[in-house]
């Protein structure tokens, strides 16, 4: 499902003293199957964009197209429920939405709402359990007895069980420790590949944008500030710093190397191992390297 934003604006609490323009004249195109990172500060309009992706909000101006579904200010779409089945959203701190008596019931809640058959739900919860790496013995436990990390996984499994075609992730690893962060992010990467999902990662983290996305959109004050391939966008230090965003650490480091040694090592997605051997050649003055 292609996602197209066409000159979208959204105003909160229109015609009140509290009126607030969240996004303004925003246009972009996310092709089906892409892994896109949307990056920006708090208040840049990221969460407003998310809510347009499954029809929680309708644009004040402009048009949002998600596959065959169209959202605009003057028409209300009837197939809202279908849209929400196709676009799964993992909100920030998704464990706050857990409510059922048992883990398995909570995971089944979404599919049930969308009218999935009981047999199918069984199969889906089983595979969602596997996908997020929860052990089967937690099935009948109350979700409120689990650790924070486990609750997060249950909540994510609840979205995966809906089997959406588009997966929207709003800071999915907020508050997790580094190990949890790595596990969850590589799980999404794997799901993206295996299920041919369109994945939209909304994040503050430049490191994650660089590591996982194949396209980045940078928002600032409700407008699109930059867009393109991560390795092209995230190296533009001055432009990013102008809106107080950092460049990823490895790129920062390469800039410093260039400053000190007067030699440019271009960023081309190299791993730390590659970088170490490039540096090694540099300090040994091995001119034959590049």
């Amino acid at each position: 499902m292609d996602i197209i934003f066409e000159k979208v604006s959204y105003v909160y609490q229109k015609n009140t003293p509290f009126e607030h323009q969240a996004i303004q004249n925003l246009s972009f195109h996310i092709p089906s199957g892409a892994f896109v990172a949307i990056v920006g500060h708090t208040g840049s309009g990221k969460s407003t964009v998310i809510q347009h992706l499954n029809g929680l909000l309708r644009p004040t101006k402009g048009e949002v197209r998600i596959g065959e579904y169209i959202l605009s200010s003057d028409q209300k779409i009837k197939e809202l429920k279908q849209l929400r089945e196709k676009v799964g959203v993992v909100f920030q701190y998704p464990e706050h939405q857990l409510f059922e008596e048992t883990v398995v019931k909570d995971i089944a809640f979404g599919p049930q709402n969308f009218g999935v058959s009981q047999n199918e739900i069984e199969a889906r919860t089983k595979s969602a359990f596997e996908a997020v790496g929860l052990s089967e013995e937690l099935r009948e436990r109350s979700p409120f007895d689990l650790s924070g990390g486990q609750m997060r996984r249950v909540a994510i499994a609840g979205i995966l069980a809906i089997q959406p075609e588009v997966l929207v992730l709003d800071e999915p690893t907020a508050g997790l420790d580094p190990k949890g962060h790595r596990e969850i992010m590589s799980m999404f990467k794997r799901l993206h590949r295996e299920n041919e999902l369109t994945t939209i990662l909304v994040t503050h983290s430049m490191e994650d944008a660089l590591e996982y996305a194949d396209h980045v959109i940078i928002l600032d004050h409700g407008t699109k500030y930059m867009e393109g391939k991560p390795e092209e966008v995230l190296i533009q230090k001055d432009k990013l710093q102008a809106v107080q965003l950092d460049v990823p650490e490895i790129i920062q480091f390469l800039f410093r190397v260039e400053n000190i040694f007067g030699v440019k090592i271009p960023y081309q997605g190299q791993s730390i191992v590659d970088l170490a051997s490039e540096l090694n050649r540099l300090i040994r003055g091995d001119g034959s390297s590049e």
Binding site: N54, E85, H96, G110, Q112, G158, I162
Partner: peptide
């Protein structure tokens, strides 16, 4: 704010 967030999260899980 919390009520709004949760109701949006549940709406996304198909609650009407």
């Amino acid at each position: 704010q919390e009520t709004e967030k949760i109701s949006k999260a549940q709406a996304s899980r198909g609650v009407d």
